[in-house]
Design a binder for these strands. Structure first.
Lengths: 203, 203
DNA sequence: ACCTGAACACCGTTCAAGT
DNA sequence: ACCTGAACACCGTTCAAGT
């Protein structure tokens, strides 16, 4: 594949095209290792060294894609919780957000795993608000809304949100990774979790 | 490095040495990619093709190491729960087992992550009882013991065990991967989880 | 300024050959 | 039977050179 030469000042276009290609490859292959620099640039129609004008190294490329996907994950859960929250149904909003989180992880198995596979010492490079904290804040606010509505126990919302978040993460990863395990129904597990930990009424 | 030639019928010795080397490298480097075939064989003092007499490919090597480590993880949790269980303290045994699971994951960050990074379609190759089910069965039995002792709510123990297992997994991975997050105390999180989901009394 | 051609040092894996 | 030497097709990354 070949490609028309870019004019001066149009370097950002290639950068976006490379990110798009990396995101596509990640979605297709479900496995970080299959997403090679050479596959990315070939898809765009450019040679490997061109990529290094826009990204420091391969890790940098993956990190940028991860940042994008975190925003999408946060948006998906927010969108699901929005309706019930507007109607004042705090517990239902929390439940809908949690289920949307799990559904997103299920539909993006490779992508979801990659979000958390980034090494500790490199995460600082992520732009503010994309390291999962937006989604976490939304979760904590959802729990606080339940408390104010008298639909949750009165414990430290940060503690409850942390327990629910880690549990959701475990559900998201294990149910995909150990697909052959005799899992109980996902909704039942979420309800067990929210009812037990947060204290929301069972639906 | 070089190495004395093995006599006939001593092929199994090399196999074990290779597994030991792979396990060491995994513990040292904390990252699956650093554990290369060439690094493994060099540590043992042998050339790359020798490895293929004992393992199908790299994935096979990693899988065998994973099977070993699963047994170690199961043993660690069982050992921690043993004492309280023998004294009839069912809830304390469950709590001790959960904390031991998390401690093991903390001490083996790279190793623990690798346990679950193995792809779905290849897990069938794991020997029976090493795919995590031993630890899971132990967890379910611990919950059943609590129920019999009147220290847990009477719900389906398989459901409760599944929720607790996924939550522990989430705690184990996220607290290590997102070390900079302001996590609540780990014991408090475990107690919140067990008290809420299983219904054990707070210590 | 933006991109390419060619190379470097690696990797997993395989094949023929040595003892 | 067990292991080696040498090679293959890849990979990430870099450097000098082209337009």
């Amino acid at each position: 594949v070949s490609r028309a030469r870019s004019a001066r000042g149009r370097g950002d276009e290639l950068r976006e095209e490379l990110l798009d290609a990396a995101e596509e490859l990640l979605a297709e292959h479900d496995d970080e290792r299959q997403v090679t620099i050479r596959a990315i640039v070939e898809r765009v129609g450019v040679t490997p060294p061109s990529l290094y004008r826009h990204f420091r190294d391969k890790r940098d490329v993956i990190e940028q894609v991860v940042a994008r996907r975190f925003l999408a994950l946060g948006a998906a859960t927010m969108a699901a919780a929005e309706g019930p929250a507007a109607r004042g149904e705090a517990a239902e909003a929390l439940r809908a957000g949690c289920l949307a989180y799990l559904e997103w992880a299920r539909e993006n198995p490779g992508g979801y795993a990659v979000l958390f596979r980034v090494r500790r010492d490199t995460e600082l490079g992520l732009p503010e608000g994309s390291s999962g904290s937006v989604a976490f804040d939304g979760l904590r606010e959802g729990i606080e809304a339940c408390q104010e509505a008298g639909q949750a126990r009165s414990a430290d919302p940060h503690l409850l949100a942390a327990v629910v978040w880690t549990s959701l993460h475990g559900l998201a990863t294990l149910t995909v990774l150990r697909a052959e395990f005799p899992w109980p129904d996902l909704e039942v597990m979420v309800d067990t979790l929210l009812h037990g930990v947060v204290g929301t009424p069972l639906p």
